[in-house]
Design a protein around this nucleic acid. Structure first.
Ligand code: MN
Ligand code: MN
Ligand code: MN
Ligand code: MN
Lengths: 228, 228
DNA sequence: GCTGATAATTAGGCATACCTAAATTACAGT
DNA sequence: ACTGTAATTTAGGTATGCCTAATTATCAGC
């Protein structure tokens, strides 16, 4: 169990979430590693006695049950740590990801258990991501990208991507965070910006497509109650 | 800056504390690594543009100013983490060392600063070890091994070695911890056991030499007040 | 000053996890 | 079926940091 292996499993898990198999190229891009290096690692992860992934040449990778469980364990570490850094140590939500990325490999089961207990077994991290359970399962939730929301509809923010601190600071400044309601007033043509109302504020903000792609929502009715 | 380098610097610092130079063999023993491997690393640490250590063949290693500062930074991480795990997360004092040993390499300066602040800039860790300051200095304190205490004298426990959890649990069961007073009633011949009174208890305990070697004290007068 | 034990170093390897450059495979369009 | 491009794999190599076995240096005792 090395850090590198854990990072691969976590990446493959995340790539599987959208689109069944994780390709060599997508893993390489996500980890910022050369594709050739990924091929080598995929082989190793699929050899072994009890493989972490299923892998056939040119077919991409897919986690085995064992691999998925390990991935979820690391993701649990990551998200619990983000919650802990935010709630207990006073980090801002744009600061937690990088620190958690390192610590997730270093903490013991005892550390995991203690902070989970201290935080009251939280369901979500500071960005609204669901925290996998100790038993290796993760709650399901129907969500959609903000970009798929039809014009005129309202939605609740469920979670936002945490990989770019700058985007997080920008969203903060707009008041966009998990639990906040949005209304899509208008959409510019040719992948143009989205005109959005945030919360109960009348003001309409124009958000670029790149930023909106990082926001996951659940549709709600006109009066703002959740629809799921 | 790799974990391995930090571990070498920390080890050399600790070995320098007693006896000016750290020998290849002592480093190897401390890190549980083959002596040949140590030689290789000592070369690397002393080459470089700005070396971490001074090293001449067959002469052992000695930290440079830079190396000492780095060692103290890692030791600060370690001891702050031990204090944090103990005070904030409810670890027992025999559980903190191994966890801190991993985490000391993973936390950022921000993490260090936050827990230091939350703990109120502590002076000592749970075993009584002094915590280096942020500026790379460490307080001095005159202390001696319990084994050097003359029969009939009293002393205050300053700190105990944290590397063996079993010894820590044993000391706990006897009520021996930093700040507690001891009186050396008698000493068996030929490196025999030490007969000790602990705190204000009349009862006399017999402690083996190996355990006593892990305890550092400062002499006090008969009535128990510190003498330093 | 020689000798033998001990400590330390050198020599040669191994595993992990990356890299670049070259070769191959897959597959979409004709 | 053919062909070109893009994705992927193979081949060969590097840096860390460890290992064992063989060699050499140091130093204490005679
Ligand atoms: Mn994250
Ligand atoms: Mn997150
Ligand atoms: Mn310790
Ligand atoms: Mn300690």
């Amino acid at each position: 169990m090395t850090e590198a292996i854990d990072d691969y499993l976590k990446t493959i898990y995340e790539l599987e979430e959208d689109g069944g198999r994780a390709s060599t190229a997508s893993i390489a891009k996500h980890l910022e590693i050369a594709p050739a290096s990924v091929t080598g690692m995929l082989k190793k992860l699929s050899e072994k006695d009890q493989p972490w992934i299923a892998y056939e040449k040119h077919q991409g990778a897919k986690l085995t049950g064992r691999g998925r469980k390990r991935a979820l364990e690391i993701i649990r570490h990551h998200r619990l740590l983000e919650k802990f850094l935010h709630d207990s140590l006073g980090y801002r939500w744009d600061e937690v990801h990088d620190e958690a990325e390192k610590l997730e490999h270093a903490i013991s089961e005892r550390f995991e258990d203690r902070i989970a207990e201290q935080l009251g077994d939280p369901i979500e991290d500071p960005h609204g991501h669901l925290i996998p359970r100790k038993d290796g399962t993760i709650p399901e939730r129907s969500q959609q990208g903000l970009l798929e929301l039809p014009v005129g509809y309202s939605a609740l923010v469920l979670c936002v991507s945490d990989r770019d601190p700058e985007i997080l600071r920008y969203l903060s400044s707009l008041g966009i965070r998990p639990g906040v309601g949005l209304r899509l007033v208008e959409k510019g043509p040719f992948d143009g910006p989205l005109m959005l109302q945030v919360g109960s504020d009348e003001k309409v903000h124009a958000l670029g497509v790149k930023v909106c792609a990082e926001i996951q929502v659940t549709m709600s009715t006109k009066d703002g109650s959740a629809d799921d």
